[in-house]
Write a protein that binds this DNA or RNA. Structure first.
Lengths: 253, 253
DNA sequence: GCTGTTATGCGTAGACCATACGCAGAACTA
DNA sequence: TAGTTCTGCGTATGGTCTACGCATAACAGC
């Protein structure tokens, strides 16, 4: 439905038009009492306060002092609202790499910026993403990431793959640490006790004869200490950057 | 609630006891008409056929010819059922690496096994995972992954980080390709036309002056060709393995 | 200034969803 | 046979998203 075609090619989904500010208000009819950005901000406020699960259309409407169904004049569906929330939630991209920076320090900065955004707004991880990035800020992040690789000899398609690799890693790492935080909160346990408790549980369940390697990990106390999540993040990121480094050297040589 | 403690330490969540087969049937009362595995199998069948969104308690009950509320005698909540579904859905782990295999070929096989499992059951990606792996098959995968690194000089904690890195990558890559598939199906477009359509949309939205690097990617036709997803997967995996290789060499030297 | 058009705000209602609770009856123990 | 305990499941509650339609407000053109 709504697959109408105009002079400029296939139709752009309403949510995307909203995000890019391409929607022109029709000259007739009453003044709108709300605006898409106001609704998105309210939804983000709810998510910040009570998590993504608390974001229902009625809750957002209540936040604005409006009726539930009034929102549907501005966003086509809840999924559309979620998409706009993500664009707002990530915030502006970290900007192009400082002049003179090499690709590695540039991408490190880029990865940490996403890391920080996801740490601040862990609900972003719970939004079911339904496609490649298309909103303005998302593409801004992409642009800044690509610029980090500007001086390298990588092919354009390889640059893209590299960014995908890193952003995937950042999301993944953020998901894991946020799960620990949420799990500990749900169970009423200290976050620092979460991993040890997990270790004890695994130790109780597994038969050492069938899980010897796992048993060795447990015996080494890997799960007992709660190491700094930032160190864990750095470790993985450095591995990936090492791998990219190997590729770049090969392409250069 | 239900935080009772017995002789063997803190209580094990009911779902985990189910998964490990630790629940002994009480001697009194009527014979159960169903079983946890039967329910989980039915739920998996529904997810395979109509996706995770179709998995509701009533739908699963209908699949079994039972009443909705009857299921709650076997699983404590829908989340519990989902957890058991994941354990079943992944299937058995690929087994330990063939004797004599080096770590790299072992982990490649391991990564591809998860890749294949996720490709076959893309609904696994939509299950909101809520903690570290604790079910039998999940820990089996972990065990097999660890064994691939048995001969290396890595610390136990590093082995764990390496597995986390790889499994995260596999999930991420699978998520992206499944999104393309689902998106094209939802839009009624050929999957091979998905990326070009995306490229055209981006091209129409962005201002080349503000997104020069992105513009260059588009001009290079990166998004126009639909390259083999398996090649894309191999590319990222090789980057990560290169990074791990660098670490192992450093540790060995 | 009047009229027709169009858009907004939003009330109502429908179709789902998970699940708390309680009761009838089955299967066991003593 | 009596008592206990567990199963199956009907009912009901409170939540979700959103399709539909109506009253009203604001503009365009005459």
């Amino acid at each position: 439905m709504a697959a109408q075609t105009d002079d400029n090619g296939p139709a752009i989904p309403a949510a995307i038009e909203s995000a890019w500010g391409l929607r022109d208000r029709p000259p007739k009819g009453p003044r709108p009492g709300m605006s898409v950005p106001a609704i998105v901000d309210a939804a983000v406020r709810v998510a910040d306060a009570d998590g993504l699960a608390a974001v229902s259309m009625s809750r957002v409407a209540k936040e604005l002092g409006a009726a539930t169904m009034a929102l549907y004049r501005y966003v086509g569906s809840k999924d559309e609202l979620l998409m706009l929330m993500v664009d707002t939630g990530y915030g502006p991209s970290p900007g192009p790499p400082p002049p003179g920076a090499d690709w590695r320090s540039g991408l490190t900065r880029w990865a940490w910026a996403e890391h920080d955004a996801l740490r601040q707004r862990s609900w972003l991880l719970h939004v079911p993403i339904s496609g490649p990035p298309i909103t303005p800020q998302q593409l801004g992040w992409m642009e800044d990431g690509l610029r980090c690789l500007d001086g390298t000899t990588l092919a354009e398609s390889e640059k893209m793959s590299v960014l995908l690799l890193i952003t995937g890693y950042v999301r993944n790492e953020a998901t894991l640490t946020s799960q620990i935080a949420e799990g500990s909160q749900a169970a009423g346990v200290e976050p620092s006790e979460m991993m040890p408790a997990y270790g004890r549980l695994v130790a109780r369940l597994i038969d050492p004869a069938r899980f010897p390697a796992l048993q060795r990990v447990l015996a080494a106390g890997v799960l007992n200490q709660d190491d700094d999540p930032d160190d864990e993040f750095t470790f993985g990121l450095d591995r990936i950057l090492d791998g990219i480094d190997a590729l770049i050297r090969r392409r250069t040589a």
